[in-house]
Simulated scan of single mutants.
Amino acid sequence: MSNQKLLFDEDNQKVVFDLPDAEIELSNNFFSNEESDELFRSLIDSIKWQQDQIQFYGKTFNVPRLSALYGDKNKPYSYSGITMYPHEWTPDLLLIKQRIEEVAKVEFSTCLLNYYRDGMDSNDWHQDNEKELGHNPVIASMSFGETRPFQLKHLHKPDLKKIDIPLSHGSFLLMQGKTQHFWKHKIPKTKKKIKPRINLTFRIIKN
């Protein structure tokens, strides 16, 4: 039996996940297919993608995805030993930002983008809990392209089953409250031949 309960809004487009120690909701078709197709193509071409590297046991490895940081000036962001400095907002990002801020009811300062080129590109278990994000970070996640599973597991309750949320083309996931204190999340690898995916996570940098 699953440990999660799904609560739908009236038009069945938004899903609120009834999970302990978390505030998570998913809006499918947040952008229409036509809008999503156009934004996906534009983001691939216009974003200044970079290949980051990490140190692990004295060896250097490529991060298994491309990434980029955009946002307000003087708002660098650090995670996993990587410090990124933001490029200026693009028209595409400002359009997406305005749309999601109407729902999240906050103003975001920064957007971290990840480009998953194929199924072997991934993002391992982690929390978005860096100190510059504040005490209870609000993370607004937009997805374009291939559907990938977004997995969640509770840090202190092993009896809770792992949660799998499919993030589809044009979907919007909002995490807030205590979520980052108690839940880790990941995008797992797959050997299946799948198309690329772009994920945008909007954040509020406090520094």
Rank of each mutant, 00 (worst) to 15 (best):
M1E: 13
S2F: 13
S2V: 15
S2R: 13
N3E: 09
L7M: 13
E10Q: 14
N12L: 15
N12S: 14
V16S: 15
F17L: 08
L19S: 00
P20R: 01
D21Y: 04
D21E: 08
I24N: 00
I24T: 03
E25F: 11
E25H: 11
L26F: 07
L26W: 05
S27I: 15
S27R: 14
N29W: 06
S32V: 06
N33R: 11
E34T: 10
E34P: 07
E35P: 06
L39N: 00
F40W: 04
F40E: 00
S42T: 08
L43C: 05
D45H: 14
D45L: 14
I47A: 07
I47Q: 01
F56P: 09
K59E: 02
K59R: 06
F61M: 07
F61N: 08
V63C: 07
L66P: 03
A68S: 07
L69Y: 06
Y70M: 09
Y70L: 09
G71Y: 03
K75T: 11
S78G: 09
S78R: 12
Y79Q: 06
S80G: 05
S80K: 10
T83E: 09
H87T: 10
P91N: 01
L94I: 12
L95C: 14
K97F: 03
Q98F: 06
R99Q: 08
E101A: 01
E102Y: 09
V103K: 07
F108I: 05
C111P: 05
Y115A: 02
D121K: 04
D121Y: 06
D121F: 05
D124Q: 15
D124K: 13
D124L: 11
W125G: 03
D128S: 02
L133N: 02
G134K: 06
H135Y: 15
N136R: 13
N136M: 12
P137E: 01
I139M: 08
G145D: 03
G145C: 02
R148V: 05
R148Q: 04
F150Y: 07
Q151W: 07
K153C: 09
L155D: 10
L155N: 09
H156R: 13
H156E: 14
K157H: 11
K157M: 12
P158A: 03
D159I: 14
L160R: 09
L160G: 05
L160V: 06
I163R: 06
S168G: 09
S168C: 12
L174D: 02
L174A: 03
Q176G: 12
Q176E: 13
G177A: 05
G177T: 00
K178H: 15
H181K: 11
F182Y: 12
I187S: 00
P188V: 00
K193H: 11
K195S: 13
R197P: 02
I198A: 02
L200D: 03
L200R: 01
T201G: 07
T201Y: 00
F202G: 02
I205H: 03
I205C: 00
K206V: 10
N207T: 12
